[in-house]
Design a protein around this nucleic acid. Structure first.
Lengths: 160, 160
DNA sequence: GTACATCGTTAGTGGGACTAACGCAATCGG
DNA sequence: CCGATTGCGTTAGTCCCACTAACGATGTAC
C-alpha cells in the first residue's frame, strides 16, 4: 500500500505520539497517574487492602480517633464514600465504630491493635510500590518530584 | 469536647492531612491530576472541545491522515471510544471520515481546514490553561517537572 | 482454502469523584 | 426557650473514564 503509513511508523513500526501531546503536562500527569493508580491498587489488593483503607488507618494513627466527618476531612474521602470504607475496615476488625456519647450524631472511629499491625504492613507494601513507581529517579530527583507536586497541589487547593 | 479534638485541629480549626499521606507520591499525583483534569476539561469545554478532540486533531496535523485504529494507537484513546470522538469531530466539520479504497475495513480520517483552525485555537487555550496549572513554578522548574514526568511515564510504558 | 488477525462498532463493566436528599441531633440568634 | 440553621451519618444515584467482550466484515499467511 501507499507509503502514507510510513509517516506514522518511525522505523520499527511503533505508532508515534504527536509532539504536542508528549509534552503536555496535563496529559503526562493523567497518563502517569493512570499507571500509578493501577500499580498501587493492585499492590494493595494483594495485601487485601485499598488505598482508602490506608488513608483512614494512617489518619487514625497520627491524629487519634475521630468522627466519620473528621476522617473524611482529614483524608479527602467523601463522607458518602466513607461509610463503605469503614464497613470494610470494621469487617476486618481494623477499626471500631462506636457512638459518641457527647454528640449523638457522631460515631467515634478507633483504630484497633490489629489495625495498627495492618498499617505497618501497608507502610512496607507502599514503600516497595513507590520504589517501583519512582524507579527511574535517584533519591534527589524523587525529592524534587515530591516537592514540585506538593507545591502545585497546595497552590490549587488554596485556590479552590 | 474533650481536648481529644484539639489533636486534629492545628490552630485554626482546619483538619490536617496525615504526614504519611501528604508525602505519598502516588497520592500527590492522583490528587493533582484530579484538579488538573477538571481545569483542562472545563477550559476546553468553554471552547466547545474535549481533550480527545485535541489529541486527534494534533495527531492528524503532525502525522497526516490515518485509520481510526492508527489514530487510536497514536493518541492512546481506545478504539471503542474513538468512534464517538470522531463523530463529534465530524459533526463540527473538523475532520472527514472516508472509506479507504485500499482496505475496505478502514476509514481514512483527514483533518479539514476548519479543523486546522480549531487546533490552533486549542493550542492557545491549552497554553493558557497550563500557565494556570503550573502557575507556582518558574520556567526552569516547569522544565524539570515535565522532564521527570516524561522519564517516569516512559519507564512505565516500556515496562508494560 | 482455511485459519488467523485486524477493522469499525455496539454494548457494557468497574471504579472514582461528586451531588441530592433524608432524618436526626446540636447549636445559635433572638 | 424556640425556631432556624448547621452538622452528622446514610442511601441513592450521576457522570466520567479506562477498559473488556463480542460482532460481522475484511484482509493476510500458511
Amino acid at each position: 500500500m501507499s507509503r502514507a503509513e510510513a509517516v506514522d511508523l518511525p522505523d520499527d513500526g511503533a505508532p508515534r505520539t504527536p509532539d504536542r501531546l508528549r509534552r503536555l503536562p496535563s496529559r503526562l500527569l493523567s497518563q502517569l497517574t493512570t499507571r500509578s493508580d493501577r500499580l498501587i491498587t493492585e499492590g494493595l489488593a494483594r495485601a487485601d487492602a485499598r488505598k482508602w483503607h490506608y488513608a483512614v488507618l494512617a489518619s487514625l494513627r497520627e491524629y487519634g480517633p475521630g468522627s466519620q466527618a473528621t476522617l473524611s476531612r482529614r483524608t479527602g474521602i467523601y463522607r458518602s464514600d466513607m461509610v463503605s470504607v469503614l464497613n470494610e475496615l470494621a469487617e476486618r476488625d481494623l477499626v471500631e465504630r462506636s457512638p459518641d456519647p457527647d454528640d449523638r450524631r457522631r460515631n467515634t472511629i478507633t483504630i484497633s491493635p490489629r489495625g495498627r499491625r495492618h498499617l505497618r504492613r501497608l507502610d512496607k507494601v507502599l514503600d516497595d510500590l513507590h520504589d517501583e513507581l519512582l524507579a527511574p529517579l535517584d533519591p534527589a530527583e524523587r525529592g524534587q518530584f515530591v516537592g514540585l507536586l506538593t507545591r502545585l497541589l497546595d497552590h490549587h487547593t488554596r485556590i479552590s
